[in-house]
Design a binder for these strands. Structure first.
Length: 249
DNA sequence: CTATTTGTTATCGT
DNA sequence: TACGATAACAAATA
C-alpha cells in the first residue's frame, strides 16, 4: 500500500518523466476524457499527486495504484504519452480504487500541513492534534490535521516513539518522541525505497516495517498485538509501547 | 460464501 | 452542537 514515502518516490519519478514535456493523458477508466498539456511541474500534497500545466491532473494511488513505463501486463486505467519522445507511462491499478481527476486548481483546504520534509517539533505535533480526544493512532491519520499519514505509518511511528496506540490524545506526553519518530520513519523509508517502481509490502518483497503485519517485536521479541481501532488494524508491541510512560519521562 | 486491505465520506449516537 | 466511532464504498484476493 502506498504510504507517503511511496507517493513521494512516485512524485519524483513522474517529475523526471513528464516535466517540460507535452503530455497526452489517455483516460481509460475515469470519465475525464483525453487531455493534453505541457507539464510544468509535479508535486505531492499529502498522498495526492498533482501533475500541473494549464490545468491540474490529480492522482490518488489508494491501495494498488502506480505509474510505470508502459508494459503489456498490468491493469491499466490511464496512460500518459510524452508526445515528442513517444514514451508512454501507465497508471496501473489492480484493485481499481485509485482516482484521477482534472481540475483547474487543486483545492487542498481539507488537508493539514505536511509532516515532511521539514522537521516538525514536539509542540507542532501537539498543536496539530490539539482538541482531539480520540486515541492517538486514529488521530495521526486525520488528514485535516496532518496530511499524508496512513494506517501503516501511524502504527510504525507509534512503535518508534514507544507510545501505546490506545492512549488518548490529551494523555499523550511523548510528543518529542512522536516528532522524532515521524521524521525518521518518513525519511528512512523514502531513502530505502527510492527507485523506479513502488514496492508493496504484500508483493513478495521483504516487509520493510517494524510492527505492521509482524508476529514478533524486532526489539524485544514480544508477540505483536493486533487490534482494531476505528475499523483499522493496529499493530503494536505491548512491551515497548507501554500505556504508562516509562519512568523518568 | 467470509475476512481483509485502503482513504474518503456519510451517518449514527453520545 | 461537536466530536468520535462506525458503516459504506470502490475491487480484488486468500
Amino acid at each position: 500500500m502506498p504510504e507517503l514515502p511511496e507517493v513521494e518516490i512516485q512524485c519524483r519519478t513522474l517529475r523526471r518523466w513528464l516535466v517540460g514535456r507535452r503530455v497526452l493523458l489517455e483516460d481509460l477508466d475515469f470519465g475525464c476524457g483525453n487531455r493534453e498539456m505541457r507539464v510544468t511541474g509535479v508535486r505531492r500534497r499529502g498522498k495526492y499527486l498533482l501533475i500541473e500545466g494549464k490545468e491540474t491532473w490529480v492522482l490518488h494511488l489508494r491501495m494498488t495504484g502506480k505509474v510505470v513505463p508502459s508494459r503489456p501486463e498490468g491493469r491499466k486505467r490511464a496512460r500518459f504519452h510524452t508526445l515528442q519522445s513517444g514514451q508512454a507511462y501507465d497508471f496501473e491499478d489492480a484493485r481499481r480504487l485509485g482516482t484521477l481527476a482534472v481540475v483547474g486548481v487543486f483545492d487542498d483546504s481539507h488537508l493539514g500541513p505536511e509532516p515532511w520534509p521539514e522537521k516538525r517539533n514536539a509542540s507542532w505535533w501537539r498543536d496539530r492534534l490539539q482538541g482531539l480526544r480520540s486515541p492517538i493512532k486514529p488521530a495521526l491519520m486525520r488528514q485535516d490535521r496532518v496530511a499524508g499519514l496512513g494506517n501503516i505509518a501511524a502504527s510504525e511511528i507509534l512503535f518508534r516513539a514507544g507510545v501505546d496506540p490506545r492512549i488518548r490524545v490529551p494523555d499523550v506526553r511523548r510528543w518529542k518522541h512522536i516528532a522524532d519518530a515521524a521524521h525518521a520513519f518518513l525519511g528512512e523509508l523514502i531513502a530505502e525505497e527510492a527507485g523506479e517502481e513502488i514496492l508493496y509490502v504484500t508483493q513478495g518483497g521483504s516487509n520493510p516495517f517494524r510492527v505492521y503485519q509482524r508476529a514478533q517485536c524486532p526489539t524485544c521479541a514480544t508477540a505483536i498485538t493486533r487490534l482494531v481501532q476505528s475499523g483499522r488494524a493496529t499493530f503494536f508491541c505491548p512491551t515497548c509501547q507501554p500505556i504508562s510512560p516509562v519512568s523518568g519521562r
